[in-house]
């Protein structure tokens, strides 16, 4: 495959003889030593470097899930493009949805450098075999949800993603830098939608509050399960993929939201939010982790709808892919004939 020269897939000798096995072991040990050194120096691993199989697997899972989330994440907002309240809002929403597509593609590219083909990832998503962020399985019921998604969901995403810009895997970090630059517009436009509704009629203000009420808890759960129930976190932190724990990031996010919700003139649907003077951390009320697990397992309010829509879009686009391939083949033939004639 074309990406081969950008990957390192260690060649396995077909029938390892004794010498080959020894040589293999020596290379592994050398690779591990180099990898450990890179980790200790907080430097970066690049696609062709040796890396432990578990590191590759973890990254592949995380990056592909991240890519799927961006792609599925287009749906709740795309559904509102045709109902945006003004031409300006429509243009903004289209730009945002286009950004999400772009983010998905940056991330698929990063995942491919680990040796997974893009088609395989797409197939896994469509077949319902891949995970994506649980947040996108909740419905966007009103226009105010466009505001709440931008402010809370993209806000939480930014909180999560800024430290990922320093992830130890080079292509992932670089994709995240690009994504973070673009995300801040997403959060601000969401904030503005809510601010305008909040300063509108009482009914509009109520709509904004209702959207915040519904998205608050799911947004907090985007950071993942509590630290004592997050088995992979520790290893990811040791590998410098993850820089802060789930609870740490969640607590920071709550602190930011507390400030910002005041400016909006709205409230967070959580009476237990407080700053703990002892730990110097923000605390929040209990979250429904059973619900989180249900949604992740495919039993959320919109899972089936999201996958069905993705499948439809993929099938509907088949003729475009075929036509582009046919055109490219024809052009290549023409070019070859010209070359031959010359």
């Amino acid at each position: 495959m074309a990406a081969q020269n950008l990957q390192s897939v260690p060649d396995q000798p077909a029938v390892p003889g004794r010498d080959e096995a020894d040589e293999q072991a020596r290379l592994e040990a050398e690779g591990q030593a180099y990898f450990d050194k890179v980790m200790a120096e907080d430097s970066r691993i690049e696609p062709k470097d040796w890396m432990p199989a578990a590191y590759r697997k973890t990254l592949l899972r995380q990056i592909s899930q991240h890519a799927h989330s961006e792609i599925i994440g287009m749906q709740p907002e795309a559904n509102w493009i045709s109902r945006a309240p003004s031409l300006k809002r429509k243009a903004i929403l289209m730009a945002k949805v286009q950004d999400e597509a772009g983010h998905g593609l940056y991330l698929y590219s990063a995942a491919e450098t680990l040796g997974q083909s893009r088609d395989k990832m797409m197939d896994d998503l469509i077949a319902g075999k891949a995970r994506y962020s649980s947040i996108f399985n909740y419905p966007a019921l009103t226009w105010a949800d466009m505001g709440a998604i931008g402010w809370l969901v993209d806000g939480a995403a930014i909180c999560n993603q800024v430290p990922l810009c320093r992830a130890s895997y080079g292509p992932y970090g670089r994709a995240m830098v690009r994504i973070c630059k673009e995300e801040s517009f997403h959060q601000r436009q969401g904030f503005e939608i809510l601010l305008e509704l909040s300063n509108g009629t009482p009914a509009q203000k109520q709509m904004a509050q209702d959207a915040v009420n519904r998205w608050y808890a799911p947004a907090l759960m985007m950071f993942g399960p509590p630290d004592d129930d997050s088995p992979n976190s520790k290893q990811s932190m040791a590998w410098n993929i993850k820089r802060f724990s789930n609870d740490e990031l969640r607590s920071r996010f709550v602190g930011m939201m507390v400030e910002q919700v005041r400016v909006l003139g709205l409230t967070l649907p959580d009476s237990e939010v407080r700053f703990n003077e002892e730990t110097k951390k923000w605390e929040h009320g209990p979250l429904d982790w059973e619900e989180f697990k249900e949604v992740l397992a495919g039993r959320g309010p919109c899972n089936a709808q999201r996958l069905e829509r993705r499948r439809e879009a993929h099938d509907d686009g088949a003729w475009v892919r075929e036509a582009a391939a046919a055109y490219a083949a024809k052009q290549a033939r023409k070019h070859a004939e010209k070359e031959f004639a010359a």
Partner: peptide, 29 residues
């Protein structure tokens, strides 16, 4: 209709929970 919660949410079997990183399964093309 934007976002009518799917009534058939149970359609996705729980295999959706499986992580993608496993060995290549039968890709349903």
């Amino acid at each position: 209709n934007p976002e009518v919660p799917a009534s058939s949410a149970g359609d996705v079997e729980s295999s959706a929970a499986k992580v993608p990183a496993g060995p290549a399964g039968p890709a349903s093309a």
